[in-house]
Design a protein around this nucleic acid. Structure first.
Lengths: 204, 204
DNA sequence: ACGCACCTACCGATCGGTCGGTAGCCTTAC
DNA sequence: GTAAGGCTACCGACCGATCGGTAGGTGCGT
């Protein structure tokens, strides 16, 4: 072991740090029951510890929410925003953003984004940090819509309102989708892309 | 006063029963902070009473949530579902449903519908009652989409998924809309109707 | 005199969080 | 090889505050 070996190497059965297990479990519980509705005792039990043991890993419930939100935002940026930014054509970019975002709901825990409204439980300064990063995503969608409008491809729609509608159809999936119903992941991606592009693109 | 006079006549400044004031204030608080995040002490203070005084009017927090959800559902049925059912043409019916629903977000407190996921805090039997009535609304949308498909007017879209997308664009408005921004109510109604109809209607 | 609307004072339970410990592993010294 | 020391990961027991809810009373309009 050298100074270079800074990695925390303790892993659980699935190659997850105990810390990661805690944050992920917390995110799942909070998505189901909300921030206020999830007690630290419940969370401790869910990861197989006592509350005191849990507090060895985290500093407070509030800080845990902040970490969860920041991590979700980073995941969104690296798996959706950055790849999309590299696409020049606005129509193809929007198509890819929706596709990547919906896929991310399954592959990377992007459903955690449902917790963003819970940022009201954070300190104002922290709320602002999280809020700004969300706005930058909305900004990318608006910019893409504006480029489409410049090309004459956009329907007669308000860009601000439309960007919200698009985001709601995507984020909304995590609210209503239950995998027991007869809807496959691939279907959901395709249908959501089509729904939104049918809505905004002028017929050529 | 006769037996026929069953109306509770105590009214506050705006012609509201104390009971109505409590339920409406509770609904507003819960939409902002969630069911678990809203304490009965907060609610009591918001209506200018003590907690004990509040409990003179209601039986329990849980029952209050049930009443709020049932009332929201009745409002939705009388102002959106019933009027829409009387329209024969499916395209016009869908258009009117969206228009009435979005308008209702402002005129009748239809934003209360954001509390429907909170029905998980109710007893299973009550959850089912509320859940069924929501499904009947979704059923009407699906039926309307199916009629459009029969007429050959529907895009190549899955009816189940599309009905969810439509509902999310409408309900989602109550999540992101803040009246301070430069968006008028009329704009919002028009844009939401257009967005969804652009999405689902085949170009003729 | 009666009941409605409301109060003060309180209940047991649960909340987020902390305290002082301890079992087991890893390193270092001899 | 092994004992000492330290560190990580946890635990039982507990804290003050707040939770949903209640008991018993007061004042007021009819």
């Amino acid at each position: 072991m050298t100074i270079a070996d800074t990695a925390k190497s303790k892993a659980t059965q699935e190659g997850q740090t105990r810390n990661e297990e805690i944050f992920q479990t917390a995110a799942e519980l909070m998505v189901q029951r909300g921030y206020a509705g999830t007690s630290m005792g419940d969370l401790a039990k869910a990861v197989g510890m006592t509350k005191a043991g849990l507090y060895h890993h985290i500093s407070s419930k509030q800080d845990m929410l902040l970490q969860i939100l920041l991590h979700a935002m980073e995941e969104l940026e690296s798996t959706v925003i950055e790849p999309a930014k590299r696409i020049a054509d606005p129509e193809e970019r929007l198509r890819e953003m929706i596709r990547l975002h919906v896929r991310g709901l399954f592959d990377h825990g992007l459903e955690t984004a449902l917790l963003f409204p819970e940022r009201r439980h954070l300190e104002p300064a922290q709320q602002q940090v999280v809020g700004q990063r969300i706005q930058s995503y909305r900004g990318l969608i608006r910019e893409t819509l504006r480029e489409l409008a410049d090309e004459g491809k956009l329907q007669d729609l308000d860009i601000n309102i439309t960007s919200s509608h698009i985001l709601q159809t995507i984020a909304g999936i995590a609210r209503w989708y239950r995998k027991d119903a007869g809807v496959t992941e691939a279907q959901l991606v395709e249908q959501t892309v089509n729904f939104n592009l049918f809505a905004i693109l002028k017929v050529s």
